[in-house]
């Protein structure tokens, strides 16, 4: 069943929230894609059922189980971003998207494994295998295309980043991954500001951007590297037991806590900002980005392959993109997220 079908069944009292939640909790516990299970899920299911029984209108997705990529904070559940350096980290507040999910009556089943500080192929796999009806993730276009599921990377800024562990601050966007375009749209409407996602859309030609990928890599790694600096083993992050002094504490904690891919990104990011490289590379990347964003103002929709070269366009310009089960994406103008979902479903 899709998420909307589950919601309809609950509303029609064909199935209880508790039953659905139990089903998905069992699947999550048995799945290697989940890194944490919400032990309060049954209690929350009972609360939602009580509200529905009392005649409260919560949302079109009330009672439906959902999972979150493990870079989104749920207070009281550990959050590790797939990294050893965040082992044992306990968020002190709920992410804003989590607050919205709870107000809408969705049940958080658990947290999904991910590549260290990056995307979550596990989320796409879990949704594809119906281990969970749908999930919230950050840019998962490649994984979604590989697993034949739907995914929207929303317009940048449409969804609050409060309570999301920052990776690339100017590109991070929390979006849905689901088995239908309608499920994606419905979930997006719960977590996003309506005016940010509701403009209409239509197909156009796309200009070429030869330097976009390089600009995207430079900006991504520089921002991600800077955002990773806070994991220093001093005020935050797992501290190395082998360090003999302050500098070693920094260097060993971080070297032991990060995988190779993360180290590579952090080093490349530092390099792009160091000394003359700011003028030579980083500043130019920001100028390329400005040019690109301006050029894309006239574009309302374009169908593109899902790969680095094409993914970077929506990332740099903050545009929405929907990945379809056929492995292609449609990128739209800013604020046309829902129209993309509807067009994609057609």
């Amino acid at each position: 069943m899709t998420a909307l079908q589950i919601a309809a069944a609950i509303a029609a009292k064909e199935v209880s929230v508790a039953d659905i939640t139990t089903q998905y909790i069992e699947k999550a516990r048995a799945s290697a894609n989940f890194v944490a299970i919400n032990e309060q899920a049954m209690e929350q299911a009972a609360q939602v059922q009580a509200k529905l029984d009392a005649g409260e209108t919560l949302s079109p997705l009330a009672g439906v189980p959902v999972a979150l990529q493990d870079n989104i904070f749920v207070q009281g559940m550990p959050c590790a971003c797939g990294s050893a350096i965040m082992a044992d980290y306990m968020p002190m507040f709920d992410a804003e998207v989590v607050q919205k999910l709870q107000a809408a009556g969705l049940i958080v089943i658990g947290k999904l494994a991910m590549n260290e500080f990056a995307d979550s192929p596990q989320a796409a796999a879990a949704v594809a295998a119906d281990e969970i009806p749908f999930a919230l993730v950050t840019d998962n276009r490649k994984a979604a295309a590989q697993h034949g599921v739907w995914h929207i990377k929303p317009t940048y800024g449409a969804v609050s980043r409060l309570g999301l562990v920052a990776n690339v601050s100017s590109m991070d966007a929390i979006g849905p991954v689901a088995r239908s375009a309608e499920d994606c749209a419905a979930l997006l409407q719960i977590i996003a500001d309506a005016q940010w996602i509701d403009l209409p859309s239509g197909l156009t030609e796309l200009p070429a951007f030869p330097h976009a990928l390089t600009a995207c890599e430079i900006i991504s790694c520089a921002e991600a590297g800077a955002n990773l600096q806070k994991f220093d083993g001093i005020s935050l992050g797992k501290r190395s037991a082998d360090a003999q002094n302050l500098t070693e504490t920094y260097k060993f904690s971080r070297a032991q806590g990060f995988g190779m891919a993360t180290k590579r990104r952090a080093l490349f990011g530092s390099l792009m900002l160091a000394g003359d490289n700011y003028e030579l590379y980083y500043k130019k990347a920001l100028q390329v980005r400005a040019q690109m964003k301006a050029a894309l103002e006239g574009v309302s929709m374009a169908e593109l392959p899902v790969d680095d070269v094409h993914n970077c366009l929506a990332s740099l310009a903050g545009l929405p993109a929907i990945v379809k089960p056929d492995g292609k994406q449609i990128m739209g103008a800013a604020f046309t997220d829902i129209a993309l979902a509807k067009g994609g479903a057609a």
Partner: peptide, 11 residues
């Protein structure tokens, strides 16, 4: 070496 110092990594 400089890059590792800047990024506080011990490779």
């Amino acid at each position: 070496k400089t890059l590792q110092d800047l990024t506080m990594l011990a490779l």
